[in-house]
Nucleic acid binder design. Structure first.
Lengths: 196, 196
DNA sequence: ACAGCCATGTAACTTGTTACATGATTTT
DNA sequence: AAAATCATGTAACAAGTTACATGGCTGT
């Protein structure tokens, strides 16, 4: 919901046309994650469908301006006033992967963790370097850039710490004790007497 | 790609039927994130479409077994051997939201951060409590459960730390200096002389 | 008999994302 | 004249998610 809500929040500042939204989004959230232009128009159509924005007038240059609706403004206010829900639904791919690796027989969980740790540590180092090398990109908010850069650094640090922790846990529990084979003899209720 | 790859990795251990896959997934990745049963069949169809699994035989109980293909096994091996890519594409909703809040005129970024911090800190406390209260759920791998619980705790800690950091940054920069109004007078090249 | 679980499946929908078509204007 | 950029849009797809339909079996 990130792109959708972001565009809506920008439109809450005043009418914009598609390409302008892309520029506004970019200079507020950094040159990282370049947003495909097509997605802007896509998202605008969906926001219009949901009654949160309305297609406005076209200026002398041919720019199609979009306006936020009262319902859209309400949504922006609600978004900014409420915290981002983290727990629900958000399946962390790395965590799930390691949990599987730790419980699947025949998988070398320690090696999976080690591979990931090397990659994550390298990425963390690169992020810190990139952070040191000031972004000489034009037209980007330095505060926003800094906040975003710190966000990825903080979460990368946590990832590496967790990987170290996971390595310790896995080392303490031999594969034999943590691996679960497929449950072959399960209750098997329901639906008997079918095919050949 | 989390669900898709997970099911494939489980199938690499041997043929399973749909409901069984759900049980295997659940006891390896914890009772959290309950996986809707329908999604299993959905994902299996897509994996079949991609040639990674094949519809196998039906046993005496009517269970439809699915088998991994050589291509599927290769994919599992490649998945386990390569690190999870974190940087690319992964837009962090909270980070983007705060970057926007910090740069949009009229938005009280400090208040947004404070609201989030309270929610995140409360969640962190709840997670630690839940972690202390041992999961007496049946049939779930304790090591996997522990790893997953730690993963969310570690990342929640990082989130709170980052929020504190962000609060400091924002406090140091008054709204006037960090807010960017919509760029009204932009280059405006291309596409003139159109509508009324 | 009836509730509830086991089990398979289908249909619809969401957000994100990319590739492509089209055309005008500015710059070189 | 050609290349790059501005600008709008369309079409298609991926992955996740939910709601629903259908049945059969088990336990009360």
């Amino acid at each position: 919901m990130s792109v959708r809500q972001s565009l809506l929040a920008i439109l809450d500042q005043g009418p914009c046309y598609g390409y302008q939204l892309r520029a506004e989004f970019a200079r507020r959230t950094g040159a990282a994650w370049p947003l495909n232009v097509g997605q802007i128009y896509n998202t605008l159509d969906r926001l219009e469908r949901d009654g949160l924005v309305a297609r406005g007038e076209t200026d002398a240059h041919g720019h199609v301006f979009w306006t936020i609706t009262p319902a859209g403004s309400r949504e922006v206010a609600a978004w900014l006033a409420s915290p981002v829900e983290r727990a629900a639904g958000t399946r962390d791919e790395l965590a799930v992967k390691l949990a599987l690796a730790a419980t699947l027989p025949g998988v070398d969980a320690a090696r999976v963790i080690d591979t990931q740790r090397q990659a994550s540590a390298a990425r963390l180092a690169a992020l810190r370097n990139a952070r040191a090398a000031a972004a000489d990109e034009v037209e980007v908010s330095p505060i926003a850039q800094s906040l975003l850069a710190d966000a990825v650094v903080f979460s990368a640090e946590a990832e590496v710490r967790w990987l170290d922790h996971a390595a310790t846990i896995v080392a303490q529990h031999p594969a034999a004790s943590r691996s679960l084979p497929l449950a072959t003899e399960r209750p098997r209720r329901g639906r008997p007497t079918a095919a050949a």
